[in-house]
Design a protein around this nucleic acid. Structure first.
Lengths: 337, 337
DNA sequence: TTGAAAGCGCTAACAC
DNA sequence: GTGTTAGCGCTTTCAA
């Protein structure tokens, strides 16, 4: 049995009573059903306005079997990349009258499945953003989460569209750019081990290595934050590399700041690249050379895919790969000055 | 009458049937009601596990009159300040089993009321973040949105707690800091006109002006983004000011980058301050002198206030003001070199 | 301890 | 064109 919390909320029954009609008629009017006599419709609208009545979405949801809400699960809301995806998703969904519910797994991969399930049950669909869980678990979970779209991850489940960024290609272009500038000793400051996008970058660098046997390429352990980059200064300097590929812009910015504190000049002494092209990247000193990913658009596209799934119940079987665009700025320069 | 979307979802009835008990008993077991015979309870749990049953939150919400969800309305999800508030709110609410629904008004103040109302109806409570709407409208809206907490805005409605940052005090300290460094010509690069926090800064600067008749203080129109700051370079240079107070860190960073492009040295030629101390502020070159606001904590506190309102239905009548902390870094230095 | 039944607020089929 | 009624999936009172 329901509960009253504080002031009684006005429901459809109150309006019906006031207008002297049935619930059904009120419902029809509120939903713009034109089979209602105009005079009566007006009476209902007046009553509704007078009582300041607004239909209860929970009641509607139960009756209609939909919530007009979608969920998004992200590993870390502090990460500008995920913030931008969220923003793109939220804006696009809002255009179609959908709201978004957020779930932050705080990089705890064991929480993801539970969070995703809970979010999914409250919503009409789900966006799973760069999930850290293992492939097997993702594969097993996917059917129960449908409709869902995946960002920076994929599954064999055919009904699940995947939006992916070609990190492999991007990092290769960045590395080629450094080689083009004469760098022969390069270091990669890696990201979180569980991150699929980090694995993709690794794969890209393997290809790069095969194509450039003469170039020395070192892998350095890292993470995905400012702090990681800032703390890596010593390791980077010790590596002797003149060109550094940071996991992403955040890491690059932390490193840049650390190098600056040490009096190491960028790009004269060390060339440095980021990844993502977050809004801040162009405002560092020097501005960051990076691989630009249309992150906000990614969120927008995620909604479009999800919308199709929700509407059709048939999968568009979309699998889209976004190509990063090399953005050359001041943080990279000729080697060996 | 309800609708079936795709695959039939398993409901309480299926479990009841399988376990050979009534709906009511299943409900009791699922809610940890111990008045159920242990053997039967186990049978129910087994059936639930086998069917992979999870209670439908919409059904629960309707019966219980609560959604375990709160809403947040922000003027612009692209703003790091609001992102940090959202994050603090989301993390804190998650601790108590609440999720958050987001609504971005895109700085369109006329949308705020509608968005807020819609969000509120779907949720158990609302956080209204730096609303751009007028005082009168806010005042009128407040009762219908209860329980709600306000960030960087206040109302006379006693049941609405307000969490505010003392921008007036912060900007005064920043200005004093510049004066202490010998600056006698200062410019304030203002924020959005509708922003209450901008008005608070203005008020603070009025006080500052009264206290320092000898200091020349110019007001420059601006906004709240990078771009605003970047575009303001000419105006700032034309003002002849040697000390510049930017509306926030974002604006300061844009301006910093613009000054750098012009070959203007910071802090040698111009000293520059931001506001907020977003995570990026310490990583600019030079690092930004700013007034640090515990933004994430603000979100966290917002949840605590809201939680109290939701639980008590009585208002804690909280009115908290956060004092910014002066964070002196490299972007400010002695005047007149 | 358990089940039957009412009710949360709404939509929609069906009958008038 | 409008009202009656069933039903969405759940919780909870009440009676057994």
């Amino acid at each position: 049995m329901g509960r009253r919390t504080g002031t009684r909320r006005v429901g459809i029954a109150d309006v019906a009573l006031k207008a002297g009609v049935s619930h059904a008629t009120v419902s029809r009017v509120m939903n713009g059903n034109f089979t209602v006599d105009p005079a009566i419709a007006q009476r209902v609208r007046d009553a509704a306005a007078e009582l300041n009545y607004q239909p209860n979405p929970v009641g509607r949801s139960l009756a209609l079997g939909k919530t007009d809400t979608i969920g998004i699960v992200v590993p870390d809301l502090a990460n500008p990349t995920f913030q931008a995806i969220l923003r793109g998703l939220s804006m696009a969904a809002a255009q179609d009258g959908y709201r978004v519910l957020i779930a932050d797994s705080s990089e705890v991969s064991s929480e993801e499945a539970i969070l995703a399930g809970e979010a999914r049950r409250r919503c009409d669909g789900l966006v799973l953003c760069a999930p850290r869980m293992g492939d097997a678990e993702l594969e097993e979970l996917a059917p129960s989460l449908h409709p869902m779209v995946l960002i920076n991850r994929s599954t064999t489940e055919t009904r699940v569209p995947s939006l992916e960024v070609d990190y492999s290609q991007g990092v290769q272009e960045l590395a080629e750019h450094l080689v083009g500038l004469g760098h022969t000793s390069i270091a990669f400051l890696a990201g979180p081990a569980r991150s699929a996008s980090n694995r993709a970058r690794m794969a890209g660098l393997d290809k790069f290595r095969a194509a450039h046997p003469g170039v020395e390429l070192r892998m350095l352990e890292g993470g995905s934050s400012f702090e990681t980059g800032h703390e890596a200064v010593d390791e980077v300097l010790a590596s002797g590399a003149t060109g550094v590929l940071a996991f992403n812009d955040l890491v690059a910015m932390g490193l840049l700041s650390g190098l600056h504190e040490r009096g190491v000049r960028v790009p004269e002494d060390i060339s440095l690249t980021g990844f993502d092209d977050i809004p801040f990247a162009r405002y560092t000193t020097p501005p960051l050379t990076t691989a630009a990913v249309p992150i906000t658009e990614l969120g927008e596209r995620a909604w479009h895919s999800l919308r199709a799934l929700i509407r059709n119940a048939e999968a568009p079987d979309e699998e889209t790969t976004f190509q990063p665009r090399l953005e050359i700025r001041g943080s990279t320069g000729p080697a060996g000055t």
